[in-house]
Simulated assay, not measured.
Amino acid sequence: MRALFPGSFDPVTEGHQDVIRRAALLFDEVVVCAMVNASKAGRLLVAERLERLRAAAAGLGNVTVDFHSGGLLVDYCRDAGIDVVVRGVRDGRDLEHEVPMAHMNRELAGVETLFIASDPERAHISSSLVTAVVRTGRVG
Rank of each mutant, 00 (worst) to 15 (best):
A123K: 03
A38L: 12
G81R: 06
E121H: 07
F9Y: 06
P11M: 11
A102K: 07
G92E: 04
R122H: 10
H97Q: 11
V99W: 02
R49M: 12
S118Q: 05
Y76I: 12
I125R: 00
I125V: 13
A55P: 07
F27G: 05
V111D: 06
A132Y: 04
V139I: 10
T113K: 05
A24N: 02
V130N: 02
G92P: 00
L72F: 15
E121L: 14
V46K: 15
G92Q: 02
G88K: 04
G61Y: 03
L25F: 05
L114D: 01
V46G: 09
R49E: 07
I82F: 11
M1K: 12
C77S: 09
L25I: 01
R52T: 05
I116V: 10
G42Q: 14
G92A: 06
K40W: 10
R54V: 07
D10Q: 10
G15A: 04
R93D: 08
Y76H: 07
C77Q: 05
V85T: 07
V65S: 09
G71Q: 13
K40C: 07
G42R: 14
E107M: 14
L44W: 13
T13C: 05
H103R: 14
V36N: 13
L50R: 12
D28N: 14
P100D: 11
L73S: 06
P6M: 08
D91V: 03
G15Y: 00
L26M: 10
G42Y: 08
V19W: 02
G70A: 15
V12N: 01
F115C: 01
A117R: 01
A55L: 14
D75K: 12
V133I: 13
V85M: 02
T64A: 13
T113R: 02
D18M: 05
